[in-house]
Design a protein around this nucleic acid. Structure first.
Lengths: 213, 213
DNA sequence: GTCTATATCGGGATAGAC
DNA sequence: GTCTATCCCGATATAGAC
């Protein structure tokens, strides 16, 4: 019995996630979620009292997957080049598996900035510390010119853009071929990593930003 | 009478645009649009038969404002540095005035890739030509390494990101202060222009990519 | 053209049997 | 826990008076 319950809840949350990510909170239909989960519509209300509560559960899950990946990498003991590499690789892979996700995420943070704020406040990590931490990883020459915020915006922007603009870009430049575009995306991971290393300079590869070394 | 009619239609399309951009097609309410236009709900149906048709009108308008700005600049007789500058300045200014717009645009192109495709096909401009044209503007050294698609994704990504990620970034790094963030955005325009010029090399400033010079 | 009143319907939510 | 049946409201859309 209990196993069945757990299994059902899994099916529901999985289906809900898929539908919400594709259609957004307003666009999603409870019926579609129920169909996709292979269960009855009213069961949704048994597990999650309302559509809103169900959405919250999904939204929180997704933020928890996206943001910590960010801070974990910044906190890890890596050089800036290694950091950028794991950064770009992680998000490129993640979004290639979940193409609708960037669109969903940014749409919903504009619709519910409050929900986002609550989550951020509940987090133990201080984002300003992250930015500072990132700054210490930068070679001195660049450090003086780049605000860490610019740096982060550059990296995230260049990584994210081809994913969120996919419906447009795939049609404009890749004959609307899914395969061609995935090829472009995979290739782009390497392109970005080598390009960024070039801008930063490879000479920090042997440096260690920590004093205790 | 006719003037009144025109005036009303203007008020409606303006209101519809605002509400659609903030809430999206699914999130928008006809009542809210009517209220914002200061007219009766049923008048909306008199001018545009349905919500969908109204949305189409708005969506087309917006695409027409966003994409041609793109191609006009690429076609203009500018060096790559001048091109990048007008590019970044145009979009940064446009999105600062219309903060919800990037979020709206990307959400809706995922929801209606068909509508987007139709528009693209109806355009006389060939995007591949644009990419090639852009390639001719690049200094030879860079040309060999950069696919124009990467170049475009880089510039658009770095320009767009702080706008679409605003609810997140403003909270994470700018105490959720609207003023501080606008300052950051304005400053970033210059930052991007100088940074990009640096990467490309300023030595193309005096070159003219055309043979007839 | 613009309004009021109303129809219609989709979709979230609840009651209750099993 | 899961289903069927039903409620009920919100939102788009239409009819018709002025």
């Amino acid at each position: 019995m209990n196993e069945l319950k757990i299994e059902t809840e899994q099916k529901i949350i999985k289906a809900a996630r898929e539908v919400f990510i594709e259609k957004g909170l307003q666009g999603a239909r409870m019926q579609e979620i129920a169909d996709k989960a292979g269960i009855n519509k009213s069961l949704l209300h048994y597990y999650y009292r309302s559509k809103d509560k169900m959405f919250d559960a999904v939204f929180q899950d997704i933020i928890k997957e996206l943001l910590p990946a960010f801070s974990k990498m910044v906190n890890a003991e890596m050089t800036i080049t290694e950091l950028l590499e794991s950064f770009v690789k992680f998000y490129n892979e993640f979004f290639q598996k979940n193409p609708y996700l960037p669109q969903f995420f940014f749409h919903e943070i504009w619709q519910h900035p409050d929900k986002l704020a609550d989550f951020i406040k509940s987090q133990p990590v201080n984002p300003k510390d992250l930015a500072d931490k990132m700054k210490t990883k930068l070679p001195p020459l660049i450090e003086s010119e780049y605000l860490p915020q610019h740096m982060i915006a550059n990296v995230l922007g260049m990584t994210l853009f081809p994913h969120i603009a996919r419906p447009l870009f795939q049609r404009l430049f890749f004959n609307n071929s899914k395969e061609e575009y995935n090829l472009f995306l995979s290739e782009r991971t390497n392109f970005l990593v080598t390009m960024m290393s070039g801008v930063i300079g490879d000479d920090d590869m042997n440096e260690n930003p920590n004093d205790d070394f």
